[in-house]
Amino acid sequence: ADMTLKFQSSDPAGNPNFELQQGWAASVEERTGGKVAIELLPVTSIVAHNETQDAIAAGILDGHITDTSYFSGKDPAFGLIANPVGAWSSPQEMFDFMNDGGGSQLMNELLNPYGLQFIGATTPGLEAFVSKVPLNGVDDLQGLKMRAPEGLVQQVFAAAGAAPVNLPGSEVFTSLDKGVIDAADYSVFSTNAAQGMHDVATYPVYPGFHSMPLVEVSMNKAKWDSLDAETQAALSESVREFARSQVAALAARDVAAVEEAKAGGKVTVIDWPAEERAKFRTIAAGQWASVAERSTNAQHVYDVLTGYLTENGLMNQ
């Protein structure tokens, strides 16, 4: 290839997401007619998961495939657009916003000043909730000791009455196992199952109700600008196609894992009724506004997002 770009993923090497991302990386050389090749590196191989933005700007890395919420500390706007808890009921709704509803422009308004160019969005899908106790609705969240990651997700659960505990991913399993916490926001159903979460927390909520992270594919802006329009278009298109195939592949894995769990007899998969999901979404939307107050960019994200949702009849009040 004329140009080889080093991308770092926010997933570890053995993770199914990473394998799917490798498939995308391998396809780029052919799709760009040999102009661009991508070398994909697993999480923390060059820098930590939340340091890639700086590394790309400095020219150490060329790009990343990363959960945008990791940069909430740089600007709350990243946290709000990465995981507007309750906004999307399916990956396709988020992709529609990104591709045709102004989401991409919004991402570039946020990223360009940091020296990055947004290429496209993907997601592992709607996360499933891990729990040791049966949760049938919002009321069951009262006083629930649960792990939630930094940012909006934690805030929303606090607003819903839960007692969020700040634990790193590495402590989730042991803490659930020993009962330090009763529930956790972790990952999609199949990943939770593979890591044995359901062995110690037997009441997963699936499909999830709380979180669907935006995973951005973006790269160094100067390098992007040096590419011709045709190559840029090919890259963008490759990411769109990858996002569709990733969502399909992971959803299939989830369905298989749910079947397996149900057949095993030890795990009780709980599905929340529509009204409970709506209740949770209302609580979540109330928290978007409080994030919006934290920075001008966050306010901008809030305005664009709520405008889009209202226009498309997705705001449920």
């Binding site: 909430s72 500390g73 940012g151």
Partner: peptide
């Protein structure tokens, strides 16, 4: 100052 991005969001980083 860079913040942690958590619900508490301190400037520790």
């Amino acid at each position: 100052l860079e913040r942690s991005g958590s619900a508490w969001d301190p400037v520790y980083p």
